[in-house]
Design a protein around this nucleic acid. Structure first.
Lengths: 233, 233
DNA sequence: GGTTGTGTCTCTATAATTGAAACAGTATTC
DNA sequence: GAATACTGTTTCAATTATAGAGACACAACC
């Protein structure tokens, strides 16, 4: 199988109206999931219809099917939320990522005596997927999986932004930040393209100390390459 | 002229063709996600077609749309895996659950000086979603979010089993276990129906001590009711 | 009361789906 | 190395499933 056979062209980050060859109904259902998941106020069938620019009856049918498969929960009040099935499915992809990244994270943590972590983005925030703290070290910086902060700050945020919008944020080989997220804490991050349209970053976080940024950055890049290889990309 | 009426004999799909009123195409796409997520060996477009009992061309179109929206990743080798988008969406539902359960968990932990936690199931294991440890107590039992063990052991496992298979495991008002998961550790659990088809359990875990099981169980049940109310069910 | 807004169902034209066939590569044979 | 047997991919026509409109019941709100 040849990679060039598969033409990948995702210029837009969101709003994929062009249903070239794919299924339109499926696309609408998936967009419904995204809308329900990222809704700030309470989402309902009627509002979903407006959001998707389709009839209420159509939105109703989509929700019906999504609920039947456990992807959406409908509360007694009529409010829509994402179903627990999504959490179950996500456990699968999270496990795959973690298994591929775990040895590299542990290696980085032990080698530089820093906390290493893998992060992706969701909406406009950076989310930590998994992390590894160094052993036998007096003080470390904890980076809990699931924790998130604005995409505007920190080295991982810069990396993610450069993947999302290369024009405005030219990609660098690595990014460095200090005192941007937490005062007195610095981090170095490199890009990790684990998926075509889901940017991610591999990074270390540490208390300020004399370090060789290039050395750490190249180690991160090598680890990122190994992770990507372990994932079969 | 050739009579090319392609005979549509809907094969005896076990129980998956319950598309009453909903969208059939969407249902197929969602089933594709489940199949890819729970595939033991490597999944491919052709195999997905066989699994869904549809033509390769149709499976290809489904995958195309699913990939365009980030729900599926296609590796260079042609292997299909769930996309990172699912992980980010799942974070939303997890956050909702945690926000609703956090105050109740903290209250239970403080009141009984035990670690309280919320668990659901995935496959055949019990997964801890969130937990709260008591403050100002010398020794507690830690229950990390994300940790899992077999559904066959422990009070939360019993509760989940009774929700999954009420015939074989008659539901009780509460369940108790000791030395089943970790020697010297006991737990009490009650059911928490947060979603129609996703059972969950609210529980406390503690070191053996003289306690009033019924008192704890009723407190758990009341907390579960409040959580369910907070979720709008 | 009336009004506005839900969610839900039935109906029908039409648009989108879908199966087949064909093409193009690749892996796996002989 | 040619031939075979797989993939993934695209095109096309037949027709099926879809999607919009409308109507209904029920709440909430003024």
């Amino acid at each position: 199988m040849q990679e060039s056979q598969w033409i990948r062209e995702w210029a837009p980050l969101v709003a994929d109206d062009k249903t070239d060859g794919g299924s339109q109904t499926l696309a609408r259902g998936l967009r419904a999931l995204e809308i329900v998941g990222t809704a700030e106020s309470s989402m309902t069938v009627a509002r979903l219809g407006e959001e998707l620019d389709i009839h209420r009856s159509m939105a109703y049918r989509l929700v019906k099917t999504l609920e039947l498969h456990g992807f959406i929960d409908r509360h007694a009040s009529g409010e829509l939320t994402l179903g627990v099935k999504l959490a179950t499915l996500a456990r699968s992809v999270a496990k795959t990522l973690q298994e591929a990244a775990a040895p590299e994270l542990a290696d980085l943590a032990a080698r530089f005596e820093m906390t290493a972590f893998l992060a992706t983005y969701d909406g406009d925030s950076v989310v930590t997927l998994s992390s590894s703290e160094p052993q036998n070290v007096e003080t470390t910086v904890a980076k809990r999986p699931g924790s998130r902060h604005s995409i505007d700050r920190g080295a991982p945020g810069k990396v993610v932004r450069s993947q999302l919008d290369p024009a405005r944020f030219p990609p660098q080989s690595f990014e460095f930040s200090q005192d941007e997220v937490i005062p007195g804490v610095a981090s170095i991050a490199v890009p990790l393209a684990i998926s075509g349209n889901s940017p991610a970053a591999l990074a270390v976080i540490f208390l300020p100390q004399p370090i060789d940024r290039e050395e750490i950055a190249s180690a991160l890049a090598e680890a990122a390459a190994r992770i990507r290889r372990a994932l079969g990309r």
